[in-house]
Design a protein around this nucleic acid. Structure first.
Length: 758
DNA sequence: GGAAGGCGTA
């Protein structure tokens, strides 16, 4: 071998002495031959010096680092041993498979081998798959075929191991043909690898075909199938197949248990889960972290936190997954604060644990805490992933926090967070619920793979923002795209009809649900119909719908009728609706308030006093009106008469100025809905301090001229605030967007998108 | 003549 072909970082002749000392075998040899003992005195009968080859091989076997390997490599070149295929293979094997190995160096060594054996090729392929460079592995395999070397039964498991989805899709089928062509189709190792490749491609039926053809005597074959079913979320199939495995009496491995437990967790099947736990105990399987985590996960998913905690407590080692399992278990049961205690105790938190906790707050509607935790996550320098993004976007949607939502969108683009359909759908929802329909539309257009949820989010979003016709057009387009609507889509469709007063269209769609898509209307859909008819003033027809619906009307359905009674000032029917609601939901404070509004509007003051007394007697409290406004990424909260804000002085000054400006253009306070038994002046002062007015004043102070003011209100907007917002939009040339409990009001140039119909 | 395949958490 010419010297020029030796890698330059090897110093052949300069092996340092300390290296020789550390590596005692060579050192002993050198000592022997250089010590004072004369060679002649060593009798060959007593001592046969090991051959150089044996020594080097021994060294290769104890080699720990690339530096060491390079020294050995240089020795093999110096002594001429490199030409020995066994030595070549061992050098390559170290570089390819040792934890400190190096594939670049493996290539350099490999390139010096004139005619590599199939073993050497296999080792190289294995090396690439170990470091997830599967494409290089495939290229290596093709090189091998070009060099007229035939694969053996080791080649394919190495090659196919750990393929990513895209590599599997690209090469899987073709390599399967090679397997068959070279006659390894019935090798169980190859079959296991192929099952895995096909399940990665989503071709679970082909995987199952291979499984059915296999001898089914190797637990790993079964495990590969379980893993495939779990990946496709076909947990029932995992459970069913495990039943067959039990019948067959085949010995499970700990991986079998992990996979089956994972399926049980998803299915919330405590029975099978417990059975697996019993097997684990009976089989005397060494407790291992992954298995214990799977047990915790299964018990936590089934709500059995006592058992989960017991396992958690007995564990020798716990990792972030064990802790996250416990935290999620409590979150599933709605015990958010308990979950938070465990979360705070975690020695290490990763993005999964942070996201789980954030999502936990979300599920119990504690949105502000979710956002606070997200900020903490960022100060801890933990990178959020697409799941975190979906959770945070959903919090933004609930709070109407557009600025933060926009920031998340920028973050996704900047840091290349996986922008999948889930994220896109969450963005649409966020933009719509923050009142920015234009941005929602553009996200909608960008989503390549629109699913049912994408369309539904857009339809519902358009409907609540008052773009009823566009929502219905979108629904037609959805049907043309052959996407099947579900019951939520229809809620959006009916809502679109309601908010634009399209009664006949509403009826048509309602009957189309069953006739065209076999979706039986649920109580929400009947509620929509009552709302639709009621708002259009057809109160009697609305009542007929309630009387004829096939299920028991809930308080929301009666509430829809009550809302219509308010708009159309029908106190008699309102009394009836209230009676029904209070039977179903006796502590519903909002109902008393609405009835008071109606009595006040109809000027039935005696009735009004009675209801107010009833509220006092029963200790019913009015839900305090609360408005949110986001400014510079911070959500500010105002309740009626609020004086807790740091800028409260300025806010009230602005409010005074605002009111006098508006009075100048003809504003008269509308106190018709105030039901407090107080003088007219006090009524004015009561509506004057409504939370949305405070938020509007705050918004006017803190934003640039011309900037849109966005407010989220927890209750229905009152008539007076609605009038004020219209005037503010005109007098100050501002767009004001208020999201109330059920819909959006886009105020522009003195009028509202709801056309005063809400 | 030497080497091998499967797993868990939002």
């Amino acid at each position: 071998m010419p010297l020029s072909s030796i890698p330059s970082n090897i110093r052949i002749l300069q092996i340092p002495l300390n290296f020789l000392k550390q590596n005692s075998l060579i050192f002993t040899q050198i000592k022997m031959f250089t010590s004072s003992t004369s060679l002649a005195s060593i009798s060959p009968a007593h001592f046969t010096p090991p051959s150089q080859q044996t020594l080097l091989v021994t060294h290769l076997e104890t080699c720990k680092s690339m530096d060491h390997l390079k020294q050995i490599h240089s020795q093999t070149i110096k002594t001429g041993l490199f030409t020995n295929p066994s030595v070549q293979n061992k050098l390559i094997a170290f570089c390819c498979t040792h934890e400190n190995g190096n594939m670049d160096y493996a290539c350099q060594v490999f390139d010096k081998i004139p005619q590599p054996t199939v073993f050497a090729w296999n080792t190289m392929i294995k090396g690439y798959s170990r470091i997830d460079l599967h494409r290089n592995g495939v290229l290596m395999y093709l090189d091998m075929l070009n060099s007229d070397v035939k694969p053996d039964h080791y080649t394919f498991p190495f090659l196919l191991k750990g393929f990513s989805r895209d590599v599997a899709l690209k090469f899987g089928k073709e390599l399967h043909c090679h397997v068959v062509k070279f006659g390894f189709g019935s090798n169980v190792f190859v079959q296991n690898a192929l099952i895995n490749v096909y399940s990665l491609c989503g071709e679970i039926d082909v995987a199952q075909g291979i499984f059915d053809m296999s001898c089914k005597e190797d637990a790993v074959t079964w495990n590969a199938m379980f893993s495939g079913y779990n990946r496709m979320k076909r947990y029932e199939d995992t459970r069913k197949l495990f039943g067959e495995m039990e019948l067959k009496g085949l010995l499970s491995t700990s991986v079998t248990f992990v996979l089956v437990l994972s399926a049980c967790a998803k299915l919330k099947d405590l029975d099978v889960g417990k059975r697996v736990h019993r097997y684990v105990k009976e089989c005397n399987i060494e407790p291992n972290l992954i298995l214990e985590n799977a047990l915790i996960d299964m018990y936590a998913a089934c709500g059995e936190m006592d058992v989960a905690l017991e396992i958690f407590g007995m564990m020798k080692n716990r990792d972030v997954i064990s802790w996250t399992g416990i935290v999620s278990g409590f979150l599933n049961r709605g015990q958010v604060d308990l979950a938070r205690e465990f979360f705070d105790d975690m020695p290490i938190k990763d993005y999964v644990s942070w996201t789980a906790m954030i999502d936990g707050y979300l599920r119990v509607n504690r949105f502000k805490e979710a956002l606070t935790l997200f900020r903490e996550m960022q100060t801890s320098n933990i990178r959020p992933d697409e799941f975190t993004m979906v959770s945070i976007l959903s919090a933004c949607a609930h709070l109407g926090a557009l600025e933060l939502g926009e920031w998340i969108k920028t973050y996704i683009d900047k840091y290349k967070v996986k922008n999948d359909t889930f994220v896109g759908n969450a963005l649409i929802d966020m933009y719509c619920k923050c009142g920015n329909v234009e941005k929602a539309r553009s996200i909608f257009r960008e989503i390549l793979r629109k699913d049912k949820f994408t369309w539904t989010a857009m339809i519902v979003g358009l409907a609540i923002n008052g773009h009823g016709q566009e929502a219905l057009d979108m629904f037609s387009e959805m049907l043309r795209a052959s996407i099947t609507p579900d019951e939520v889509t229809y809620v959006g469709v009916l809502c679109a009809c309601t908010h634009t007063g399209m009664v006949d269209e509403g009826r048509k769609y309602f009957s189309g649900m069953t006739s065209q898509h076999s979706i039986e209307p649920n109580v929400t859909h009947y509620g929509c119909m009552v709302d639709l008819l009621g708002r259009a003033g057809r109160l009697k027809e609305a009542l007929e719908v309630i009387k004829n619906m096939p299920m028991k009307p809930n308080s929301i359905v009666w509430g829809a009728l009550l809302g219509a009674c308010r708009v159309h000032k029908d106190a008699e029917m309102a009394e009836m609706a209230v009676k029904q609601i209070l039977e179903l939901d006796p502590d519903n404070g909002a109902v008393y308030v609405l009835l008071c509004n109606i009595y006040a509007a109809c000027n039935r003051l005696d009735n009004l006093r009675e209801v107010r007394q009833l509220m006092l007697d029963r200790g019913i409290k009015k839900t305090p009106g609360c408005s949110l406004i986001e400014m510079n990424g911070v959500v500010h909260e105002f309740v009626a008469g609020d004086q807790s804000h740091p800028e409260t002085g300025e806010i009230y000054l602005k409010l005074e100025k605002m009111t006098s400006d508006l009075k100048f253009v003809g504003y008269l306070p509308d106190t018709s809905e105030v039901f407090l038994d107080i003088g007219e002046e006090e009524k004015e002062s009561a509506v004057y301090r409504h939370s949305e007015k405070l938020a509007m004043a705050f918004g006017l102070i803190n934003s640039e001229p011309g900037a849109t003011i966005r407010i989220v209100k927890n209750l229905r907007m009152c008539v007076d605030c609605h009038r004020v917002a219209k005037l503010v939009s005109k007098v100050y040339d501002r767009e004001v967007i208020v999201r109330d409990k059920t819909r959006f009001h886009h105020f522009r140039d003195g009028s509202c998108s709801c056309k005063d119909y809400w």
